[in-house]
């Protein structure tokens, strides 16, 4: 099938590593209204370059997930601007956002969100067609170390394995952006480290811009930069001169 591109963002061929990928200006998200109004994001500003690995760190309710959802086109901002390259995501229609997600973004969620009635292989195959030059599902699964579990259903996999299937599914379409919301949140440390390892390997292999939400301060050392969140704002941005490898992590 020919994927019709919605107007408003560029094709894969125009992509260049090193250029600016995201620009946020005064990004704000308000839930509810009146007495029960909650400012989940409050005037957030940042820039992220292609190939960067950014860790978002902060307590629950500080706005990390809200930001990630808006960046991934899963939710709409209340005000402010968010640019993906030259395209202003905050003005895109639902349909255009669908194409943006389909072609540019890979997601990894805390609770895997695998389709329980499909095998590991099939869960990955679910997305590979959406991209023009996807990885073969088996290759994507090999990249996260699951080459031996292609035919297993989610219920037959451990939590870590399920999360690695989710990573394989996210990277299989060679996304430009990989958005991970607490990918290790439901996992023990040993399994969590394996998952981070898989994530970094895949991200490096495909030179993907990666954003990673975590509660876990230990993980920040794998990032190029760390955004610290508090009360819906980015309170501080720290840059790591040297990144540690996943294998060196402990928590």
């Amino acid at each position: 099938m020919v994927i019709r591109l919605a107007r408003g963002y560029r094709t894969q061929a125009e992509r260049t590593v090193g250029s600016r990928v995201f620009t946020a200006q005064g990004l704000t998200k308000v839930y509810g209204s009146g007495d029960v109004e909650v400012r989940a994001l409050n005037d957030v500003n940042f820039e992220i370059d292609a190939g960067e690995i950014v860790v978002l760190l902060g307590p629950s309710g500080s706005g990390k997930s809200t930001l990630l959802n808006i960046m991934g086109g899963l939710d709409q901002a209340t005000s402010g601007h968010l640019f993906y390259r030259d395209t202003e995501l905050t003005t895109l229609s639902d349909r255009a956002l669908t194409f943006y997600r389909r072609e540019r973004v890979g997601f990894v969620f805390q609770f895997y969100n695998l389709v329980p009635s499909l095998t590991a292989y099939e869960n990955v195959a679910l997305v590979t067609h959406l991209s023009k030059r996807p990885l073969a599902p088996a290759d994507a699964l090999a990249l996260v170390g699951l080459e031996g579990r292609l035919d297993h259903f989610p219920a037959q996999l451990s939590g870590g394995e399920q999360q690695r299937v989710a990573i394989a599914r996210a990277i299989a379409k060679r996304p430009e952006v990989l958005l991970c919301d607490e990918p290790t949140g439901a996992l023990d440390s040993k399994t969590g480290i394996r998952v981070i390892e898989a994530l970094l390997t895949a991200s490096a292999e495909l030179r993907t811009t990666t954003l990673l939400i975590t509660h876990n301060a230990a993980i920040q050392s794998v990032a190029d930069r760390v955004f610290f969140f508090a009360d819906g704002r980015i309170s501080r941005i720290a840059a790591n001169d040297t990144r540690t490898s996943a294998a060196e992590l402990t928590w």
């Binding site: 991934g72 899963l74 669908t98 389909r102 997601f107 969100n113 389709v115 959406l130």
Partner: peptide, 14 residues
């Protein structure tokens, strides 16, 4: 509901 949300996140159209 959740699977429908997932399909949307993956880029499936309505």
């Amino acid at each position: 509901r959740e699977q429908i949300g997932l399909f949307k996140a993956l880029g499936y159209g309505n």
